[in-house]
Design a protein around this nucleic acid. Structure first.
Lengths: 153, 153
DNA sequence: CTATAATTAGTCAAAGAAAGTCAAACTTAA
DNA sequence: TTAAGTTTGACTTTCTTTGACTAATTATAG
């Protein structure tokens, strides 16, 4: 049996209760007698966005890795939409999905506008060389939207 | 638990009343049994302009460190933030800015979480070849966040 | 008054404590 | 017999803690 699968199972059962877990990468690697980077491998291949996991981490003293997930038994429309998005998404199609979520009162008008601002063609314009540049661009788009909202367009 | 975080919490709760506090660096370091420069570290990393804090200090007998919280509540201050963002932005810094906007009631907690989800490192993970792929990834992150919100995380 | 001592806070670099990256080596399944 | 998936370890980056040294301000002795 692969160590990667064993670690995956361990994490899964540990977060079964409340869909969240905070681990220490080194301790976990130590516990399973593997390289610390093995933990990263498990996280990258098993606990992905596509599978409904959110990750967060911090280095240095008191560092950690935190994993959150949407509960496995959630079977509402939003979950279906994730699957339907696939690997590519035009702004037009995203807008349609957002508008529907708005109609269903799952998000507010303001929230729709913020997400549209963050993920517009302009905000995500490529080619961009780094994640930080991309984020700076997209975030400014969000801030401008906030000003617009406030000033009533 | 990090001593830096403990000191941060201490200061935060002490200045909760009227958004200001005056401390003695040495007394505080003494109280927490740490190096005085640890106080500077907390100030430099936690009480930054991005987070809405202004600092002032004086050395010598009767010296002090004064911290003031300044609120961002006009469109103008949002414009200033846009300028300060520059051409690159880490997730950590964006989170600080968003947390501040939240404190000043410019955005809701939900809106903060949606934008963080849309522009997280995972969401914008490069190398990605097209805007559509990028958007698909980022939007899934938003949808997962929506489900989490619904589940009352 | 002035020089010196005492009393603060500031700076910076080194050491320590985590997690992240990446490519080479190894395994396994098709 | 490859191609994809897995494992490992050397190296990097980030965050925290500490302490020696510096700078500014006030208090005091002469």
């Amino acid at each position: 049996m692969r160590i990667a699968d064993i670690i995956e199972q361990f994490i899964l059962s540990a977060m079964q209760e409340d869909n969240t877990i905070e681990i220490s990468r080194n301790s976990l690697a130590d516990y399973f007698g593997c390289a610390p980077s093995q933990i990263n491998y498990v996280l990258e291949t098993r606990f992905t966005l596509d599978r409904g996991y959110k990750k967060e981490s911090k280095r240095g003293g008191g560092g950690f890795i935190k994993i959150d997930r949407i509960s496995a038994d959630t079977s509402d429309s939003t979950r279906l939409i994730i699957e339907s998005v696939g690997s590519e998404l035009t702004f037009r199609r995203m807008s349609q999905i957002l508008d529907r979520l708005k109609q269903d009162k799952i998000v507010s008008k303001r929230e729709v506008n913020l997400v549209k601002a963050a993920l517009s063609d302009d905000a995500l314009s490529l080619p961009i060389l780094s994640t930080e540049k991309l984020r700076a661009n997209a975030f400014k788009s969000v801030l401008i939207e906030l000003i617009s909202e406030k000033e009533g367009k």
